[in-house]
């Protein structure tokens, strides 16, 4: 079975979407993700095109997790992860450290899903004072 990296970004209530729209976005955070996994390894859905439009090597797929090759990385905004938990070797959770409303929440509890928190770091985003990056591995 392939092993991939998946990244998500969550608000203080584990929220991901409101009314089918992303809660927020941040250029610096996306740049950090691209830098950390390599632009050519990234798979995202067309929904995320707007935030990756400056990165021409990113691959778009309706289901990026299924399309992602072994060793690749997905940035997921609008789909559940629990059906694919066996394929996820590394889980990156970015946290806005802000409150938004949400009607779609993150569907994984990393620790209950077999992940161990490996590192936590923080950086300043372009529109967020403090973004937290948590890296979980199995």
């Amino acid at each position: 079975m392939k092993k991939i990296t998946v990244a998500v970004v969550l608000d203080d209530n584990e929220g991901m979407l409101l009314f089918g729209k992303r809660q927020s976005k941040d250029r610096v955070m996306i740049a950090e993700f691209v830098s950390s996994v390599g632009e050519e390894n990234i798979y995202v859905s067309p929904f995320s095109k707007r935030i990756f439009e400056n990165y021409v090597s990113v691959t778009y797929a309706d289901n990026p997790i299924e399309a992602c090759v072994d060793g690749g990385a997905c940035f997921i905004e609008n789909m559940p992860l629990s059906p694919y938990v066996d394929s996820i070797e590394t889980l990156i959770i970015y946290r806005w450290n802000r409150l938004y409303h949400s009607d779609v929440k993150f569907d994984l509890n990393p620790e209950k899903s077999g992940f161990k928190l490996e590192s936590v770091s923080e950086f300043q985003g372009s529109s967020h004072d403090r973004i937290t990056k948590e890296i979980y591995r199995k």
Binding site: L99, H101, S126
Partner: peptide
């Protein structure tokens, strides 16, 4: 007020991005 702030956050973030 707590319900207004998240909406304001969304708009503020958008303008900054």
């Amino acid at each position: 007020n707590e319900a207004m702030i998240p909406l304001e956050n969304m708009v503020a973030d958008y303008i900054k991005e």
